[in-house]
Simulated assay, not measured.
Amino acid sequence: MRFGMFVPQGWRHDLVGIEPAEHWAVMHGIAAHADREDSPWESIWVYDHFHTVPTPSLTEATHEAWSLVNAYAASTSRVRIGQMCTCMSYRNPAYLAKVAATADLVSGGRVEMGIGGGWYEHEWRAYGYGFPPVRERLGRLREGVEIMRQAWTTGTATLDGEYYQVDGAIFQPQPLQPGGIPFWIAGGGEQVTLRIAAKYASYTNFFGSPEEFTHKSEVLRGHCEKLGRDFSSITRSANFNTVIGSDAADVERRLAALEARVAPYLGPDVTARFIADYRGPNSLVGTPAEIVAKLSSLRERGLEYVITYQPELAYDRSGLELFEQEVVPQLR
């Protein structure tokens, strides 16, 4: 099993109480921790969003994803760098292909392309993108991935699509990675998203309950068979809200600290829903033994790559270190 981690960037109210002038030092310090030669982390990740969740804040930061990707590309040397996931419609795909190729060169060939259709309606409308129906968002995803694939494998791209048109766009220099930057197609939509993944992805990123993970894996397998793609060539990944403690009391202490930190910004009702997310299927909350047991079960269902989001990293790295010491060695 392979491991990546999200670096806090403010989107999930994970830099509150820290002065904006100090944000980069905090974020870079965590990235540098992951980048150590003896680190168990294969990758670091950011979110591609503009407004905080679960409610948009007029005062709290959300740092822009691709600016951070390039900053990490220049300031780290080993760890791979991704976004989970880039919203296709937020940037013209030809422009995005150029941005990503530059980041890949800066990083020495360490960029991952997480890409999806997008969902956060509030920021879509606030930034002037409208909020097209799912069919259009996924159509843009399909066409955009095709443009990027052409760009990174041929050095040029031409597409007269329903949503995007490019005509001999030139992409030099090429990414350093042979075959282009790997695609992580995010989302579990069975008719469209997983079909796009079966055609283009090196990685998928979806989850839910263990049973849902198994079901979507079989849907992906079916699309691969229809396209003549080797199902085993696609690595299945999932993201997890993660709170780890040395014992049950420590876990509850950490959850209580998280609740106290966000409550002044979210209010009681939203805070309650926010904390409830850490009890759902997309969570790794518990002692090391409990987390190892859950991930071991999911590994038997085909999960190969785990990306953790630990909300306390900007304030306390002891949970990160506990995960490194007592979870990763049991599963790598």
Score class of each variant (00 low, 15 high):
H215K: 10
Q177D: 12
Y305N: 03
G155I: 08
A65K: 06
L295V: 11
A100Y: 04
G245C: 04
F207S: 07
F6K: 03
V16I: 09
N205K: 07
V145C: 13
I291Y: 07
L96N: 00
N282H: 09
T287E: 13
T193Q: 05
E162R: 13
W152Y: 13
D316Y: 07
N239Q: 14
D250L: 06
S89R: 02
I196E: 01
C224Q: 11
A97T: 02
P54N: 06
A94C: 09
T308N: 10
T287N: 12
E190I: 00
H51T: 02
L141Q: 07
E324I: 02
T271F: 04
G188T: 10
S246F: 07
Y305H: 10
K226N: 12
Y95E: 15
F323R: 12
A100V: 00
V262F: 06
E218F: 06
V270P: 03
Y315L: 11
E252Q: 11
D35Q: 12
T76S: 15
T158C: 09
L159G: 08
Q310A: 12
L141W: 01
S209T: 12
A71M: 15
D104H: 07
D104N: 07
R110D: 02
L176V: 11
P175E: 13
Q172I: 11
G144H: 02
P329V: 04
R279A: 09
K294A: 11
